[in-house]
Design a protein around this nucleic acid. Structure first.
Lengths: 219, 219
DNA sequence: CTTGACATAGAACGTATGTTCCGCTAGAAT
DNA sequence: ATTCTAGCGGAACATACGTTCTATGTCAAG
């Protein structure tokens, strides 16, 4: 995969192929490309097409008329970016056990269960995974049975983040707003009528992920 | 636009064209269609293609190899339908006022503010509108400040629905699970630790919409 | 200078592909 | 019965289209 600069002609060719395909529902022929871009010889068009294949911008099927398609690489560069992202659903979350984390090496595929979320609901799109809440033990986080929480796998956190934490001494998972206060850590329930938990020894606390989104489907 | 019934062959042709186009990025040739559908003669494929054009399922460009494209009419019928829908955000919801409802005649467009939701999060897609929760007054529904509730404008409701109701006597909007119990109505908070409200006189109760989805964005 | 890689142009070639024409059959209409 | 039409199959045809070959010009490296 060379990463060389495209010539002006080649960019125009890509543009034309995209435009033509959208307008007509099928790709242009070599001669149509040549005519539009201003190349008299079909062999030159052919030559540059192979160039573009080498650069990874499109793929061709030999001996097939109009047998070319744009690569995702190019489509992604041209498109504003697809608006919906798939988030793997890796398990359930409840008070009695630590959060099941996705195995770091596991690809996004492979997980058969996933939810689709529009990108604009999320501020970040990396290292996301989803969990279904089991039981009513997270009520102080205003999260109920069946709700889906989308979390981000992240090591560090900042004051005010809502995180999933595993409390070693209590052997309990909870969702709380987290604040560092000197040597101590304050875990603040989302429900303002409830009291915070103060952790004197941060060793007892294991942040497992940052909550990015909560979705509750009724019906 | 005739509306005649398609023959088995013609449906298979449409299916194949769609499938082939998705896989290869360009439409199949007449001979490829014939081979796949089981037609030995190119003229027959051609004949049926023209049939389909007459019926409005696709359009062709004469003398152009692979010069066919599916019509929107067919694409709409075949496609599961685009997966993301826009829901207009018509206002805010808080305890002190009735739910702001979208004007019934207002088109989905025109409203500039909207949120995009993937369809699989919703069981229905008609008459939806979204509201942003203001304040902490809905906490007994496990809904907090800034949460977004997606509601469905619907006249009737069934036991167990979560609805937005306007309580005439208390002059208050709340989100509750609703149950009919004889002549009375029970409004059950989502938070199981809280007590239900019993409405003796259903006249005091005005169901404004059915809650379909709650979304909480952190950060 | 020569050499070689790169880009281009033109022409010739082979074939993949759409088009057309003729013949056949089954069924409905006359 | 005859006629007409819709649908199918086969073959021949014309050409749109991808491929290949040769020739030319440019430019940096040797």
């Amino acid at each position: 995969m060379a990463k060389k600069q495209l010539t002006d002609r080649q960019t125009r060719m890509l543009d034309f192929i995209l435009q033509f395909s959208e307008e007509n529902g099928y790709p242009p022929s070599i001669r149509q490309i040549g005519k539009n871009v201003g190349i008299s010889s079909t062999s030159v068009v052919n030559y540059n097409l192979n160039r573009l294949v080498e650069e990874g911008y499109l793929s061709r099927d030999q001996k097939v008329s109009r047998g070319l398609r744009l690569t995702e690489k190019f489509l992604k560069a041209a498109e504003p970016l697809a608006n919906v992202i798939r988030i793997p659903k890796v398990g359930r979350i409840f008070a009695g056990e630590p959060v099941p984390l996705p195995s770091t090496d596991s690809p996004i595929f492979g997980t058969d269960e996933a939810i689709e979320i529009t990108r604009d609901l999320l501020s970040s799109t990396d290292n996301l995974f989803a969990l279904e809440v089991k039981g009513e033990s997270m009520i102080d986080a205003m999260v109920g049975d069946g709700d889906i929480v989308v979390m981000k796998r992240e090591l560090d956190w900042r004051n005010g983040d809502m995180v999933a934490v595993w409390l070693r001494d209590k052997e309990e998972t909870t969702l709380k707003y987290i604040y560092r206060e000197g040597t101590r850590v304050r875990l603040q329930p989302a429900n303002p009528t409830m009291d915070p938990i103060i952790i004197e020894n941060p060793e007892n606390l294991e942040v497992q992920g940052k909550v990015m989104l909560v979705v509750r489907q009724l019906n």
